[in-house]
Simulated assay, not measured.
Amino acid sequence: MWRKHRLRFDEVTRFFESIPRLKQRAILTIAYDTGLCVSEAVHLKVADIDNRRMMICVNHGKFRKDNYVILSPRLPEILRFLLAERHRGTGFFQAAFQGGPSGAMPWARQP
């Protein structure tokens, strides 16, 4: 019989550190922290983030409904980093990074 296995913190950390590109790492971090599908995380726009209420509005998410998800405490730092790195457009992930470091995430912290 198949059993669920919860990953330990160090396993999750190793998984995210094994992703070489910051953009892909950021997408998966956002999806993991919020419970969004990767396709929903990729289509996030700056206007979807409500920092005051610590919420993300997911437009046309699952079942084509608008949903709200809670912003985890570390996501605003990731989103600020992406906002500084993004190019023209309204979304965080519309343009690929031009070069840039592929090492450690600048926002990563130990608990």
Score class of each variant (00 low, 15 high):
residue 37 C to M: 14
residue 37 C to L: 15
residue 38 V to H: 00
residue 38 V to W: 04
residue 38 V to F: 05
residue 39 S to G: 10
residue 42 V to M: 09
residue 42 V to H: 04
residue 43 H to K: 15
residue 43 H to A: 15
residue 44 L to A: 01
residue 45 K to D: 14
residue 45 K to P: 02
residue 45 K to M: 08
residue 48 D to Y: 03
residue 49 I to C: 00
residue 50 D to E: 06
residue 50 D to P: 04
residue 52 R to Y: 03
residue 52 R to S: 12
residue 52 R to E: 13
residue 53 R to K: 14
residue 56 I to W: 05
residue 56 I to T: 08
residue 57 C to W: 09
residue 57 C to V: 12
residue 58 V to P: 05
residue 58 V to Q: 02
residue 60 H to Q: 15
residue 61 G to F: 06
residue 61 G to Q: 05
residue 62 K to W: 07
residue 62 K to G: 10
residue 63 F to Y: 08
residue 63 F to H: 07
residue 67 N to S: 12
residue 70 I to V: 15
residue 72 S to I: 07
residue 72 S to V: 09
residue 72 S to P: 04
residue 74 R to L: 10
residue 74 R to Y: 11
residue 75 L to A: 10
residue 76 P to Y: 05
residue 76 P to F: 04
residue 77 E to P: 00
residue 79 L to K: 06
residue 81 F to G: 09
residue 81 F to D: 05
residue 81 F to N: 08
residue 82 L to Q: 10
residue 84 A to L: 15
residue 85 E to F: 06
residue 86 R to C: 12
residue 87 H to T: 12
residue 87 H to I: 06
residue 89 G to V: 04
residue 89 G to F: 02
residue 91 G to V: 02
residue 92 F to K: 01
residue 93 F to L: 12
residue 97 F to S: 09
residue 97 F to Y: 09
residue 97 F to K: 06
residue 97 F to N: 07
residue 99 G to C: 10
residue 99 G to Q: 08
residue 101 P to M: 02
residue 101 P to S: 15
residue 102 S to G: 15
residue 102 S to N: 14
residue 103 G to S: 05
residue 104 A to G: 05
